[in-house]
């Protein structure tokens, strides 16, 4: 039986140690890494892990936020506050600027999402700063294509992922050697599930933006999901604006992230709700993944996170 001896690590400690190991491999193997920071719980967890990996030293990378302009203001405030508190460098690059500079076409529609346009801004930022590795908070439990991506994922100069040409990744050896033009996306929390993240946040008492907790918000109902009223979505005459007590399970853009009706105002309540829920994180809250079975695979092939 698995009796806990003095020298056995709890599963959260094992996941933490693995993530720290990966962060340090990035720091050790690359010249100019960056940590992609969205203001969501996964990237906040990454920052917490980086503190554990590199303190009392400074981070060997800046935090980089690709700002779609459609973010929740609470998440942006939190982002700035966190970067200030830990005293690390934050670089923000705006999708808005890329659209103007490159004459990109804005998507249209009721929930016109700039999600896909982020890729352009990200690739421009990679070029501008010469980043050779970008650390991201993707998890393999989120989605089927992600379940197959390596922890060190080599991308071509278009940021493209080729699932058929992935490098074998054995033991705890990460091969970060790349040719000119290529770069690596590194995913330290690949092996964490949504529940692992929440349990870790609870254990480590990690602060989160307020929108993760129950609050009142004006929303409209759309195909069984609650979408926040904001300047970025189109309200139609048939839409009924209601005030609901909601929280967010993921924090993406206001255009493509749906809220969950909930009274959970502390982490214990959230964990209880997630344990009981019968819908996956992306299924419940992402409006953009429902398009096709291979939506994520296609986005990744095109350079998405």
């Amino acid at each position: 039986m698995s009796t806990a001896s003095k020298y056995q690590l709890d599963y959260l400690d094992q996941l933490e140690s693995e993530a720290i190991h990966i962060l340090r491999e990035v720091a050790g193997q690359f010249e100019r890494p960056a940590l992609l920071f969205s203001g969501g719980k996964d990237s906040i967890t990454l920052v917490h892990l980086a503190l554990k990996a590199f303190r009392p030293g400074k981070f060997p990378f800046p935090l980089v936020h690709i700002d779609t302009g459609h973010n929740f203001p609470e998440a942006l405030d939190f982002r700035d506050h966190l970067a200030r508190t830990i005293g690390e460098k934050l670089i923000v690059r705006k999708v808005e600027d890329t659209i103007k500079a490159r004459h990109l076409t804005e998507p249209t529609g009721k929930f016109a999402s700039r999600n896909a346009l982020q890729t352009y801004t990200l690739l421009d930022a990679i070029e501008e700063f010469g980043f050779d590795a970008c650390i991201g908070g993707a998890r393999r439990d989120e989605e089927k294509a992600r379940a197959k991506e390596r922890i060190f994922s080599v991308r071509d100069e278009f940021g493209g992922w080729d699932p058929k040409r992935q490098r074998p990744e054995l033991w705890n050896i990460y091969n970060g050697k790349i040719r000119k033009g290529e770069n690596v996306r590194a995913f330290p929390i690949s092996n964490w599930t949504e529940l692992d993240i929440w349990n870790y946040i609870r254990r480590e008492q990690i602060a989160l933006p307020s929108i993760y907790f129950s609050h009142e918000r004006e929303v409209i109902g759309y195909e069984g999901q609650w979408v926040a009223v904001s300047p970025f979505i189109r309200l139609d005459p048939t839409d009924q604006v209601e005030v609901k007590r909601v929280r967010y399970r993921t924090v993406g853009d206001m255009t493509c992230t749906a809220a969950v009706e909930s009274g959970a105002s502390v982490i214990d309540d959230i964990i209880r709700e997630i344990t009981a829920t019968r819908t996956s994180e992306r299924g419940e809250t992402r409006i953009d993944d429902k398009v096709s079975e291979a939506a994520m695979e296609d986005r990744k092939k095109n350079g998405y996170f």
């Binding site: 089927k144 197959k148 699932p163 690949s190 079975e293 291979a294």
Partner: peptide
């Protein structure tokens, strides 16, 4: 089976976690 080719061919090609 996570990748399109795998679903189409009904086989597992790569390691999935």
């Amino acid at each position: 089976d996570g990748l399109r080719a795998e679903r189409e061919q009904g086989i597992t090609i790569d390691v999935a976690y």
